[in-house]
């Protein structure tokens, strides 16, 4: 269509899909990614804990992450490391049509942000807290996800002033004034901040008091500390409850329109490859 095929902005973030185990039905995940450009997946640690923590199958699946896995001294942390990587690799493999998830290579940026080496059709993000494993994938540009326990007390400990902008502090005070739960409001802001700063690969390096979010009764965008708009329609955000957790996701649309294909098997232009192969054969002869 010559008139342009710009997808909807801000980017839509669908509800998270529960994947109970590796052999679960992945078709809703594949469908969300194809139709919405974004999918969120949640799982529980016990279901993804590797059955043989030192076995050859885990070693094969973790690939280049194996030595990092072995370096983790604490057993629980090691289990969680393996479970999150397996979930991410399976999610990527299923979404992109890889026959074997072990073929997907995870690599990490300087702040530890994971990405799929050599396969930038999908950006990925990972979060975990207690038993919850959360993965986000998007074909639209960038994604960040974060999860916290809904009963985590941030407000009572005075965390607000360390992580909130002036405008957000005012918002929290209003919540208290209306007799609402300021801790829930703060958890929402905290997870949004985490999700956004993970999307831009900064983790905690980008100070949380330098950007903020408005109330949840209107479209969410990044605000400057005084509450004026910081980002535009290119960013989409969503916060929701998931069992005993609060989850937020941030997605950036890079403005390239809809991606028609994401599968590995049609990733190379056959005709270009043929032209190059013919030239190499000519040089050899």
């Amino acid at each position: 269509m010559a008139g342009g095929t710009l997808p909807e902005l801000p980017p839509v973030i669908p509800e998270a899909r529960l994947i109970r185990h590796r052999d679960d039905d992945w078709s809703p995940v594949v469908a969300d990614l194809a139709t919405q450009g974004t999918v969120l997946i949640h799982a529980r640690l016990p279901h993804w804990r590797p059955p043989e923590p030192e076995g050859p199958e885990l070693r094969r699946l973790l690939g280049r992450d194996w030595s990092k896995y072995l370096d983790i001294a604490h057993e629980q942390l090691r289990d969680r490391f393996a479970a999150t990587r397996l979930l991410l690799k399976y999610a990527a493999g299923k979404s992109l049509g890889a026959g074997d998830p072990a073929d997907v290579e995870l690599s990490y940026g300087p702040t530890g942000r994971p990405y799929l080496r050599g396969c930038d059709q999908v950006d990925v993000s990972l979060s975990h807290t207690d038993d919850l494993l959360l993965v986000g994938l998007t074909t639209r540009g960038l994604i960040g996800v974060d999860a916290e326990r809904a009963d985590r007390q941030l407000y009572a400990k005075g965390m607000g002033r360390h992580v909130c902008t002036q405008d957000e502090m005012r918002l929290l005070a209003e919540e208290v004034g209306r007799g609402r739960d300021a801790n829930q409001a703060l958890l929402r802001l905290w997870t949004l901040k985490e999700a956004y700063s993970k999307a831009i690969a900064q983790g905690m390096a980008f100070r949380f008091t330098e950007f903020g979010f408005g109330p949840d009764d209107r479209p969410v965008q990044v605000n400057r500390p005084d509450g004026t708009p910081g980002t535009g329609q290119e960013w989409g955000f969503r916060t929701f409850g998931l069992d005993e957790y609060v989850v937020s996701a941030a997605v950036y649309d890079a403005g390239f329109g809809r991606l028609r294909h994401t599968d590995f098997d049609n990733m190379l232009d056959e005709e270009a490859v043929a032209a190059i192969a013919e030239e190499l054969a000519r040089q050899r002869s």
């Binding site: 050599g118 930038d120 059709q121 074909t139 540009g141 290119e234 890079a254 403005g255 390239f256 991606l259 990733m267 190379l268 232009d269 270009a272 490859v273 190059i276 192969a277 190499l280």
Partner: peptide, 26 residues
Amino acid sequence: RDLQVITLGHAGSVACQATLLPQLRG
């Protein structure tokens, strides 16, 4: 914002990979 467009996004990356991959084994 503008730099993103120069990259051509994933289509830009994959086109470069289509140039590299047929040559790498040789």
